[in-house]
Protein backbone atom coordinates (compact mmCIF):
# COMPACT_ATOMS: atom_id res chain seq x y z
CA UNK A 1 0.00 0.00 0.00
CA UNK A 2 1.35 3.42 -0.98
CA UNK A 3 0.04 6.69 0.49
CA UNK A 4 -0.31 9.58 -1.93
CA UNK A 5 -0.55 12.93 -0.24
CA UNK A 6 -1.88 16.19 -1.68
CA UNK A 7 -2.59 19.47 0.05
CA UNK A 8 -5.60 20.49 -2.04
CA UNK A 9 -8.79 18.72 -3.02
CA UNK A 10 -8.27 20.06 -6.54
CA UNK A 11 -4.88 18.27 -6.66
CA UNK A 12 -6.50 15.07 -5.43
CA UNK A 13 -9.49 15.00 -7.81
CA UNK A 14 -7.65 13.89 -10.98
CA UNK A 15 -5.86 11.16 -9.01
CA UNK A 16 -9.10 9.94 -7.42
CA UNK A 17 -10.69 9.77 -10.87
CA UNK A 18 -7.72 8.09 -12.50
CA UNK A 19 -7.13 5.52 -9.76
CA UNK A 20 -10.81 4.90 -9.01
CA UNK A 21 -10.34 5.63 -5.29
CA UNK A 22 -13.22 5.31 -2.81
CA UNK A 23 -13.69 6.77 0.69
CA UNK A 24 -11.43 4.94 3.14
CA UNK A 25 -11.78 3.79 6.74
CA UNK A 26 -12.01 5.92 9.88
CA UNK A 27 -12.78 9.53 10.72
CA UNK A 28 -13.98 12.02 8.06
CA UNK A 29 -10.85 14.18 8.49
CA UNK A 30 -8.34 14.13 7.05
CA UNK A 31 -10.00 12.89 3.92
CA UNK A 32 -8.68 9.43 3.07
CA UNK A 33 -9.50 7.64 -0.18
CA UNK A 34 -8.40 4.09 -0.98
CA UNK A 35 -8.14 1.81 -3.98
CA UNK A 36 -6.12 -1.12 -5.18
CA UNK A 37 -2.81 -0.85 -3.26
CA UNK A 38 -3.12 2.93 -3.08
CA UNK A 39 -4.45 5.40 -0.54
CA UNK A 40 -4.72 9.15 -0.93
CA UNK A 41 -4.87 11.65 1.89
CA UNK A 42 -5.78 15.33 1.51
CA UNK A 43 -4.38 17.55 4.25
CA UNK A 44 -5.16 21.16 3.46
CA UNK A 45 -2.37 23.71 3.15
CA UNK A 46 0.73 23.78 5.32
CA UNK A 47 3.58 21.72 6.65
CA UNK A 48 2.00 20.82 9.99
CA UNK A 49 -1.30 19.75 8.46
CA UNK A 50 0.60 17.66 5.92
CA UNK A 51 2.57 15.88 8.66
CA UNK A 52 -0.56 15.31 10.73
CA UNK A 53 -2.52 13.98 7.76
CA UNK A 54 0.22 11.53 6.74
CA UNK A 55 0.53 10.27 10.32
CA UNK A 56 -3.26 9.90 10.59
CA UNK A 57 -3.47 8.07 7.26
CA UNK A 58 -0.70 5.77 8.33
CA UNK A 59 -2.37 4.92 11.61
CA UNK A 60 -5.78 4.34 10.02
CA UNK A 61 -4.42 2.08 7.30
CA UNK A 62 -2.16 0.20 9.69
CA UNK A 63 -5.15 -0.45 11.96
CA UNK A 64 -6.94 -2.18 9.06
CA UNK A 65 -3.92 -4.42 8.39
CA UNK A 66 -2.61 -2.44 5.41
CA UNK A 67 0.62 -0.96 6.77
CA UNK A 68 1.79 1.39 4.01
CA UNK A 69 5.19 0.69 2.48
CA UNK A 70 5.77 4.03 0.72
CA UNK A 71 4.61 7.65 0.80
CA UNK A 72 4.52 10.11 -2.08
CA UNK A 73 3.74 13.78 -1.69
CA UNK A 74 2.51 15.33 -4.92
CA UNK A 75 0.91 18.56 -6.05
CA UNK A 76 1.79 22.00 -7.29
CA UNK A 77 4.79 24.08 -6.33
CA UNK A 78 6.24 27.44 -7.28
CA UNK A 79 9.44 27.89 -9.27
CA UNK A 80 12.06 30.54 -8.47
CA UNK A 81 13.33 30.43 -12.03
CA UNK A 82 10.57 29.76 -14.53
CA UNK A 83 13.13 29.45 -17.33
CA UNK A 84 14.66 26.35 -15.74
CA UNK A 85 11.45 25.07 -14.21
CA UNK A 86 8.59 26.04 -16.53
CA UNK A 87 4.91 25.79 -15.66
CA UNK A 88 3.55 22.27 -15.96
CA UNK A 89 6.93 20.53 -15.71
CA UNK A 90 7.24 17.64 -13.23
CA UNK A 91 10.19 17.18 -10.87
CA UNK A 92 11.32 14.44 -8.53
CA UNK A 93 12.55 16.13 -5.39
CA UNK A 94 16.08 15.14 -4.40
CA UNK A 95 16.51 17.53 -1.46
CA UNK A 96 13.93 19.33 0.64
CA UNK A 97 14.71 22.13 3.07
CA UNK A 98 12.38 22.98 5.91
CA UNK A 99 12.89 26.74 5.99
CA UNK A 100 11.45 27.08 9.50
CA UNK A 101 14.37 25.18 11.06
CA UNK A 102 16.86 24.68 8.21
CA UNK A 103 16.56 20.90 8.37
CA UNK A 104 17.20 19.17 5.07
CA UNK A 105 15.70 15.90 3.88
CA UNK A 106 17.36 13.88 1.15
CA UNK A 107 15.06 11.19 -0.25
CA UNK A 108 17.18 8.13 -1.08
CA UNK A 109 16.14 7.66 -4.72
CA UNK A 110 16.81 3.97 -5.35
CA UNK A 111 14.47 3.54 -8.28
CA UNK A 112 14.99 4.34 -11.93
CA UNK A 113 12.96 7.20 -13.36
CA UNK A 114 13.31 9.51 -16.33
CA UNK A 115 11.98 12.73 -14.81
CA UNK A 116 14.16 15.73 -14.05
CA UNK A 117 15.06 16.32 -10.40
CA UNK A 118 15.19 19.49 -8.36
CA UNK A 119 15.61 20.79 -4.82
CA UNK A 120 12.58 22.09 -2.92
CA UNK A 121 12.17 24.57 -0.06
CA UNK A 122 9.11 24.30 2.16
CA UNK A 123 7.90 27.61 3.59
CA UNK A 124 5.29 28.28 6.23
CA UNK A 125 3.76 31.15 4.26
CA UNK A 126 2.86 31.97 0.69
CA UNK A 127 5.92 33.26 -1.18
CA UNK A 128 5.22 36.08 -3.58
CA UNK A 129 8.51 36.53 -5.39
CA UNK A 130 11.81 34.76 -6.12
CA UNK A 131 13.54 37.44 -4.04
CA UNK A 132 11.35 36.65 -1.05
CA UNK A 133 12.14 32.94 -1.49
CA UNK A 134 15.87 33.67 -1.52
CA UNK A 135 15.91 35.90 1.52
CA UNK A 136 16.95 34.25 4.75
CA UNK A 137 17.79 30.82 3.32
CA UNK A 138 21.26 29.32 2.92
CA UNK A 139 20.88 27.78 -0.53
CA UNK A 140 18.94 29.48 -3.29
CA UNK A 141 15.57 27.73 -3.71
CA UNK A 142 14.70 26.08 -7.00
CA UNK A 143 11.16 25.00 -6.18
CA UNK A 144 8.96 26.18 -3.34
CA UNK A 145 5.98 24.64 -1.56
CA UNK A 146 4.27 24.59 1.83
CA UNK A 147 3.94 20.87 2.64
CA UNK A 148 6.72 18.52 1.52
CA UNK A 149 8.96 19.00 4.58
CA UNK A 150 6.04 17.95 6.79
CA UNK A 151 5.50 14.82 4.71
CA UNK A 152 9.20 13.95 4.94
CA UNK A 153 9.24 14.61 8.68
CA UNK A 154 6.21 12.43 9.40
CA UNK A 155 6.93 9.85 6.68
CA UNK A 156 10.47 9.09 7.84
CA UNK A 157 9.11 8.41 11.30
CA UNK A 158 7.53 5.28 9.82
CA UNK A 159 9.68 4.46 6.81
CA UNK A 160 13.27 4.73 5.54
CA UNK A 161 14.25 7.76 3.47
CA UNK A 162 14.17 5.57 0.35
CA UNK A 163 10.42 5.06 0.77
CA UNK A 164 9.26 8.68 1.20
CA UNK A 165 9.31 10.94 -1.86
CA UNK A 166 7.89 14.08 -3.38
CA UNK A 167 6.92 14.73 -6.97
CA UNK A 168 6.11 18.33 -7.78
CA UNK A 169 4.40 20.00 -10.70
CA UNK A 170 5.30 23.62 -11.33
CA UNK A 171 2.13 25.73 -11.04
CA UNK A 172 3.46 29.26 -10.87
CA UNK A 173 6.58 31.38 -10.93
CA UNK A 174 6.04 32.81 -7.43
CA UNK A 175 4.65 36.02 -8.93
CA UNK A 176 1.33 34.76 -10.17
CA UNK A 177 0.11 32.20 -7.56
CA UNK A 178 -3.18 34.00 -7.02
CA UNK A 179 -4.03 33.52 -10.70
CA UNK A 180 -3.93 29.72 -10.33
CA UNK A 181 -7.57 28.65 -9.97
CA UNK A 182 -8.91 25.26 -8.81
CA UNK A 183 -9.63 24.47 -12.45
CA UNK A 184 -6.01 25.31 -13.35
CA UNK A 185 -4.77 23.06 -10.58
CA UNK A 186 -6.86 20.15 -11.81
CA UNK A 187 -5.77 20.67 -15.33
CA UNK A 188 -2.05 20.83 -14.39
CA UNK A 189 -2.36 17.60 -12.37
CA UNK A 190 -4.33 15.99 -15.19
CA UNK A 191 -1.52 16.84 -17.60
CA UNK A 192 1.04 15.31 -15.24
CA UNK A 193 -1.02 12.27 -14.29
CA UNK A 194 1.00 9.76 -16.34
CA UNK A 195 4.22 10.89 -14.66
CA UNK A 196 2.67 10.81 -11.21
CA UNK A 197 1.13 7.36 -11.54
CA UNK A 198 4.23 5.92 -13.21
CA UNK A 199 6.48 7.24 -10.44
CA UNK A 200 4.07 6.00 -7.76
CA UNK A 201 4.00 2.55 -9.42
CA UNK A 202 7.81 2.45 -9.55
CA UNK A 203 7.94 3.43 -5.88
CA UNK A 204 5.45 0.73 -4.99
CA UNK A 205 7.46 -1.86 -6.96
CA UNK A 206 10.65 -0.77 -5.18
CA UNK A 207 8.99 -1.06 -1.76
CA UNK A 208 7.64 -4.53 -2.62
CA UNK A 209 11.02 -5.72 -3.84
CA UNK A 210 12.83 -4.42 -0.77
CA UNK A 211 10.30 -6.17 1.46
CA UNK A 212 11.03 -9.47 -0.28
CA UNK A 213 14.78 -9.17 -0.67
CA UNK A 214 15.74 -9.95 2.93
CA UNK A 215 13.46 -12.94 3.24
CA UNK A 216 15.07 -16.38 3.52
CA UNK A 217 12.15 -18.69 4.20
CA UNK A 218 8.85 -18.53 2.39
CA UNK A 219 5.53 -18.72 4.21
CA UNK A 220 5.21 -22.51 4.17
CA UNK A 221 8.80 -22.91 5.36
CA UNK A 222 8.20 -20.44 8.20
CA UNK A 223 5.11 -22.46 9.11
CA UNK A 224 7.08 -25.72 9.16
CA UNK A 225 9.69 -24.02 11.36
CA UNK A 226 7.03 -22.74 13.76
CA UNK A 227 5.45 -26.20 13.96
CA UNK A 228 8.79 -27.82 14.76
CA UNK A 229 9.47 -25.21 17.45
CA UNK A 230 6.06 -25.80 19.01
CA UNK A 231 6.33 -29.59 18.83
CA UNK A 232 9.75 -29.50 20.51
CA UNK A 233 8.50 -26.89 23.04
CA UNK A 234 11.65 -24.80 22.62
CA UNK A 235 12.73 -21.88 24.78
CA UNK A 236 13.29 -18.48 23.17
CA UNK A 237 17.06 -19.06 22.89
CA UNK A 238 16.55 -22.51 21.38
CA UNK A 239 14.02 -21.06 18.94
CA UNK A 240 16.60 -18.50 17.80
CA UNK A 241 19.20 -21.23 17.23
CA UNK A 242 16.76 -23.38 15.28
CA UNK A 243 15.62 -20.43 13.22
CA UNK A 244 19.23 -19.63 12.24
CA UNK A 245 19.91 -23.28 11.43
CA UNK A 246 16.83 -23.53 9.21
CA UNK A 247 17.97 -20.44 7.35
CA UNK A 248 21.49 -21.80 7.04
CA UNK A 249 20.13 -25.01 5.53
CA UNK A 250 17.87 -23.12 3.10
CA UNK A 251 20.70 -20.94 1.86
CA UNK A 252 23.43 -23.56 1.77
CA UNK A 253 21.42 -26.24 -0.02
CA UNK A 254 19.02 -23.99 -1.88
CA UNK A 255 16.30 -26.37 -0.69
CA UNK A 256 13.45 -26.06 1.82
CA UNK A 257 14.30 -27.24 5.34
CA UNK A 258 10.67 -28.32 5.79
CA UNK A 259 11.20 -32.12 5.35
CA UNK A 260 13.99 -32.14 7.97
CA UNK A 261 11.88 -30.05 10.34
CA UNK A 262 8.76 -32.15 9.79
CA UNK A 263 10.59 -35.39 10.59
CA UNK A 264 11.48 -33.99 14.04
CA UNK A 265 8.11 -32.35 14.63
CA UNK A 266 6.48 -35.75 14.11
CA UNK A 267 8.24 -37.20 17.19
CA UNK A 268 7.69 -34.73 20.04
CA UNK A 269 10.02 -35.27 23.03
CA UNK A 270 8.58 -36.50 26.33
CA UNK A 271 11.13 -35.01 28.71
CA UNK A 272 13.46 -32.03 28.99
CA UNK A 273 16.36 -34.36 28.32
CA UNK A 274 14.78 -35.79 25.20
CA UNK A 275 14.02 -32.29 24.02
CA UNK A 276 17.67 -31.22 24.33
CA UNK A 277 18.81 -34.32 22.47
CA UNK A 278 16.24 -33.88 19.71
CA UNK A 279 17.26 -30.26 19.27
CA UNK A 280 20.93 -31.20 19.04
CA UNK A 281 20.19 -33.78 16.37
CA UNK A 282 17.99 -31.37 14.47
CA UNK A 283 20.62 -28.62 14.58
CA UNK A 284 23.20 -31.07 13.36
CA UNK A 285 20.95 -32.21 10.52
CA UNK A 286 20.41 -28.61 9.44
CA UNK A 287 23.88 -27.22 10.03
CA UNK A 288 26.09 -30.21 9.23
CA UNK A 289 28.84 -29.08 6.87
Amino acid sequence: MIILHTALAAEARPLIRRLGLKPGPGAPAPRLMVGDGTALVVSGTGRVRAAAAVAAAWTRLDATGHAPSAILNTGLCGAADSGRHPRGSVFVINACTDTTCGRRYYPDILLRHSLPEAGLHTFDKVIHSPEEARSGVRTAPELVDMEAAGVFEAGTLFLPASHVHALKIVGDALTDARFVTAADVESLIDDAIESITAFAAALRAFAASSEKSGRVLDESEERALGEAMDALRLTATQRARLSAAARHYRLLHDAPPSPVLAAFAARPPKSKNERAQALDRLLHALNGV
Partner: peptide
Protein backbone atom coordinates in the same frame (compact mmCIF):
# COMPACT_ATOMS: atom_id res chain seq x y z
CA UNK B 1 24.58 15.94 -8.61
CA UNK B 2 22.95 16.78 -5.28
CA UNK B 3 24.61 19.28 -2.93
CA UNK B 4 24.58 18.20 0.74
CA UNK B 5 25.72 19.82 3.98
CA UNK B 6 27.64 16.84 5.37
CA UNK B 7 28.27 13.31 4.14
CA UNK B 8 26.81 11.87 7.35
CA UNK B 9 23.42 13.39 6.42
CA UNK B 10 23.27 10.69 3.75
CA UNK B 11 25.61 8.01 5.00
CA UNK B 12 24.66 7.74 8.67
CA UNK B 13 20.89 7.69 8.37
CA UNK B 14 19.07 4.94 10.23
CA UNK B 15 17.13 2.15 8.47
CA UNK B 16 18.73 2.40 5.04
CA UNK B 17 18.01 -0.05 2.23
CA UNK B 18 21.46 -1.66 2.15
CA UNK B 19 20.67 -4.27 -0.49
CA UNK B 20 19.15 -1.81 -2.95
CA UNK B 21 21.94 0.69 -2.32
Amino acid sequence: TVPISHYKDIFNRPRQEWRAQ
